[in-house]
């Protein structure tokens, strides 16, 4: 009995044989290469198919330039607003008890579960010519739909859960002990927020901002519905990519697309770096997306 036990190789019960492990890894790698790496390479190779010169030239076309500017502007408005909202909402949810809390948490997740096209259509219904608000605002010379405000609104709606979802579990996990300690030491609410709360959540916040920004710049569906696609005015980068492509300007389309892909890669690298460096502090949050 004892002898036979000694002869058998001792392996952990959760450890599969090497053949199975390698097969699984291979499947994973092939799948990734086929569906993720290959398309990314295709984007870049198309973009540079006619050389660096054409690449930069197509990026300097007025349409491309205005699309880049608009995308940056939309992100510059939407991301900070969602940061402020996200911090407020997470603070309220994590530190206080109130009625309708569970409902608010569900509501924050709504943009994730609704198709982006619907998100855009909501604004068409709200501000369109058939609505109450639209014509009223128009009488004051304020255009929402098929203009920059509409694009910003739609982008805010779509990207609104990223920061809050990142922070809520983090702040719930941290509790309010640190804040109570700061207050008992005489700090004002404002000092407590800047000196204690914010440093405690800064990496989670940065992580949320990163994802929020990537989505804000890359959003297509919701923005497509409200933009009206006025060339040089209301086309963001993803919309402009589609327009170039439909007009058979392959290089221009892929040049612009490669910028978006680059943004995605940078986001990915930063995200991984954050997870690697501050994994412990981020660990509390559910990595759902």
């Amino acid at each position: 009995m004892e002898a036979s036990l000694q002869h058998r190789r001792v392996t952990s019960p959760t450890n599969e044989p090497a053949s199975v492990r390698w097969a699984l890894i291979l499947v994973g790698l092939v799948y990734m290469a086929l569906f993720i790496v290959l398309p990314v390479i295709a984007v870049f190779s198309e973009a540079f198919a006619q050389g660096w010169g054409t690449f930069f030239q197509s990026l300097q076309s007025p349409d491309a330039q205005s699309a880049i500017r608009l995308t940056l502007l939309v992100a510059a408005i939407a991301v900070p607003l969602n940061v402020v909202f996200g911090v407020c909402a997470s603070w309220a949810i994590a530190k206080f008890e109130f009625k309708g809390k569970a409902f608010l948490i569900t509501l924050i997740d709504l943009p994730f579960s609704v198709s982006p096209v619907i998100s855009g259509l909501v604004y068409v219904l709200l501000f369109g010519s058939g609505s109450v608000l639209g014509p009223w605002l128009k009488s004051y010379g304020i255009e929402i739909l098929f203009a920059v405000p509409g694009i910003v609104l739609a982008t805010i709606f779509v990207t609104f859960p990223f920061v809050a979802r990142e922070l809520i579990p983090l702040m719930q996990d941290q509790g309010s002990g640190d804040e109570e300690a700061a207050l008992s030491l005489g700090a004002s609410g404002w000092q407590t927020f800047w000196k204690v709360t914010l440093p405690n959540i800064k990496w989670g916040l940065l992580y949320g901002v990163l994802l929020c920004n990537a989505r804000a710049m890359g959003e297509f569906g919701a923005v497509a519905v409200v933009s009206g696609k006025i060339r040089g005015e209301t086309t963001t980068m993803p919309l402009q990519v589609e327009m170039f492509y439909n007009e058979y300007q392959g290089t221009a389309a892929f040049a612009l697309a490669s910028l978006l892909a680059l943004l995605a890669l940078v986001t990915l690298v930063l995200k991984t770096a954050l997870e690697w460096r501050f994994g412990d502090e981020l660990a509390a949050t559910g990595r759902g997306h």
């Binding site: 640190d178 008992s184 005489g186 204690v196 405690n200």
Partner: peptide
């Protein structure tokens, strides 16, 4: 709590980790 000028020590220390 700020105006009362008390010293409070928490069970789980609540030290500022940063």
């Amino acid at each position: 709590v700020q105006e009362r000028n008390i010293g409070f020590v928490f069970q789980h220390y609540a030290l500022f980790r940063h």
